[in-house]
Lab assay of single mutants.
Amino acid sequence: KKKPLTQEQLEDARRLKAIYEKKKNELGLSQESVADKMGMGQSGVGALFNGINALNAYNAALLAKILKVSVEEFSP
């Protein structure tokens, strides 16, 4: 059984999803295209955005690059 995410991890996910929602049209992104760039399925990206799975440093760095932001913008 997976450990529930901490409040901090949930807040990171909320900020990440908000940045994605704000930038997806400008950058021409969908959850599917983000998933392709990350080498995972769309459901995996959804789980990161919705605070189901915790972000690790690798995925955080990859998402920051895809969204053209710094990791600190969603994970201070």
Rank of each mutant, 00 (worst) to 15 (best):
L29R: 02
K17C: 08
L55C: 01
N59H: 12
Q9F: 00
E26F: 08
I66M: 09
K68S: 08
V34M: 11
N50K: 07
K37Y: 13
I19E: 05
D36I: 14
G39L: 06
T6E: 07
I66T: 08
K23I: 00
S70Y: 00
L10I: 13
E32G: 10
A64R: 04
F49W: 03
K24T: 04
P76F: 11
L16W: 02
G46I: 14
N53P: 03
L29I: 10
R15L: 02
L27N: 03
E32W: 08
K17G: 03
G44S: 14
S70V: 00
Y58Q: 15
K1R: 08
S70D: 14
L10P: 04
P4C: 14
M38D: 03
P4K: 14
L16G: 03
A57L: 10
A18H: 10
K65I: 00
K17A: 05
G51H: 00
F74G: 02
E8K: 04
E72C: 12
K2P: 08
E73H: 05
S33P: 03
K23D: 02
L27W: 01
E73A: 08
L10W: 07
G51N: 05
K23S: 02
I19R: 03
N50A: 09
Q31P: 15
G28V: 06
E26I: 13
G51A: 01
K22S: 12
K37M: 15
Q42N: 12
D12N: 05
E73T: 06
K17P: 01
G51C: 00
E32D: 11
E21P: 00
A13M: 06
L48A: 02
K22Q: 12
S70W: 00
E32T: 11
Y58V: 14
P76Y: 07
A54H: 06
Q9I: 00
E8S: 10
K3L: 13
R14N: 06
E11I: 05
A54W: 01
A64Y: 00
E11A: 14
R15S: 00
K24V: 04
A64I: 00
D36R: 15
L5T: 07
Q31H: 10
L10T: 10
N25S: 13
L16T: 04
I19H: 03
F74I: 14
L5C: 08
V34S: 02
K65A: 07
A61N: 14
S75Q: 02
A60Y: 04
K68E: 14
G46T: 15
E73S: 09
K65F: 00
G28L: 06
K37F: 11
K3E: 11
S75N: 06
G51E: 03
K1W: 08
K65E: 12
E73Q: 08
L27E: 07
N50T: 07
A35D: 03
L67G: 09
V34C: 03
G46R: 15
A60S: 10
E73G: 00
Y58A: 14
L5V: 09
E32Q: 14
L62E: 13
R15W: 00
S43N: 12
D12V: 10
V71K: 08
G51P: 06
G39P: 00
D36C: 13
K24R: 10
Y58T: 15
E21L: 13
P76S: 03
K37N: 07
K22I: 08
N50S: 09
Q42A: 15
L63T: 09
A18E: 12
K1D: 15
L55T: 01
Q9C: 01
K22G: 07
D36T: 13
E11Q: 09
P76N: 04
A64V: 00
K24Y: 08
N50V: 00
S33Y: 14
R15M: 04
S30H: 07
A64D: 04
E11F: 05
K17D: 02
K23W: 00
E73W: 01
Q9S: 02
K22C: 10
G28H: 11
N59T: 15
L67R: 09
Y58I: 12
A47M: 10
V45R: 03
K65T: 07
P4A: 15
K37S: 13
M40E: 05
L62F: 06
